[in-house]
Design a binder for these strands. Structure first.
Lengths: 228, 228
DNA sequence: TCGGTTTTGTTCTCACGTTCACAAACTCCT
DNA sequence: AGGAGTTTGTGAACGTGAGAACAAAACCGA
């Protein structure tokens, strides 16, 4: 036991924050497999990172390991979950119930990882009679009421690009301060509001870039310059 | 005009590569709006980055701007597309036609950005009679044939976590060298194969972390240490 | 109790990415 | 033709992140 029982809330580097959920997932798997203890080397293997990096990441949370032994899986798992803030459920609204919205609403990974979809919203009245994943689709104008009633802080945008900024503005006005944006557009939001984006085609384009360099796949003569 | 007409193929930093698709998207929008020229400041605004960073990013591609004027939208767009390698279509296979696979197959952003879904594969015979987005779902065992026939280099995994590693192994064996993984698991692949992952719940967890620090939402007393 | 073994936590160094700041280069107007 | 105004491209300073390496701290067996 260290001299001070409470962990100090140092600020954690962004790169580390982005890896904590990966560690959390691996620890959950280990727990399910009945593993009680693991070393940084084992956990690093399971998460695909360098063991030195893993130890440094964990050191930002506190000293939760035992030298010569490793980490208590259940204990470490709880500490990471607490740091991320997923020991209790976060209510989430999803706006835009097209193909992607459907998939997100049905995605079991949200529920099992500390998120609860409390509402599905769509501007199209045609969709407002559907029930997706046990939640019925409601009009977009119900946003403010739902945010206030359920204490929603996180919104997910799965609309077409053209609607995304308007949706974001309404979300911010309603009190939402964290937005996960799947629409292929840049959102502008006031300070204090976090936006993370997931763009499916950007990831493919990055792969294409590297793929192009791998294969000597004649990389298109760069002599079209004068032609334009 | 610069003295050398051809762009030198310097290697581009990863961080820059990840932003090129964003610039490309903005330039496409500007083209559609009939804008012929734009400054780094305007393009930076449209893409949500710093204008100095934008200029440095573009400088890795070559000197395609004109001082005192800005960039020719169509020309810069073509140059970026060429660098990324999306001037011609890339054939792509999607494995796992559940909710997410459906959404991906229907996502028009792939088609419009240089990717063509040539096959949808699923191990479940129940799904093999469906037609999604004009492409019929075929047995997973057809993978090798399709990869060979269509020259597929990029595969998308949208299966449950348990199946993802097996699918990746088969993809690699079939000749695929770039994988976009939506399954919440770490894939291990040989050197020379690129994997990018998209984990929907990780993004939410990162938002939750920051959200937790914003609100003084009693952050769960860290005195459970002795209790575990 | 004590040496040997294991594994963590941390320090140090290097590489990468971001931002600033400014000279070079181009246009426009008189 | 030339000066004023604009905007790019880049060198230099700064900050963040990654990896190697090792001392400190635990366990184990005799």
């Amino acid at each position: 036991m260290t001299s001070r029982p409470s962990a100090e809330p140092r600020d954690i580097p962004e790169a580390t924050v982005a890896r904590l959920p990966v560690y959390l997932r691996a620890l959950t798997t280990l727990t399910e497999d009945g593993v009680a203890t693991c070393s940084s080397e084992e956990l690093a293997q399971a998460t695909g990172v360098n063991s030195a990096k893993l130890r440094k990441d964990l050191s930002y949370l506190g000293s939760y390991g035992t030298r010569g032994v490793g980490y208590d899986v259940a204990y470490l798992r709880y500490q990471i979950a607490r740091q991320i803030g997923v020991t209790q459920d976060w209510p989430v609204v999803i706006v835009g119930i097209g193909n992607l919205g459907h998939a997100l609403a049905n995605y079991s990974g949200f529920r099992s990882r500390g998120f609860r979809v409390v509402a599905l919203l769509d501007a199209d009245p045609q969709r407002q009679h559907e029930v997706v994943a046990g939640v019925d689709v409601r009009p977009f104008d119900d946003l403010e009421t739902i945010v206030a009633d359920c204490g929603v802080a996180i919104g997910v945008i799965a609309t077409p690009a053209g609607a995304a900024q308007d949706v974001a503005d309404r979300m911010v006005a309603a009190g939402i301060r964290s937005i996960l944006n799947f629409a292929p557009t840049v959102l502008s939001v006031p300070d204090g509001v976090d936006v993370r984006k997931v763009d499916l085609s950007i990831e493919l384009q990055i792969l294409a870039y590297h793929e192009q360099r791998k294969s000597p796949h004649l990389p298109l003569t760069p002599i079209e310059e004068a032609a334009i």
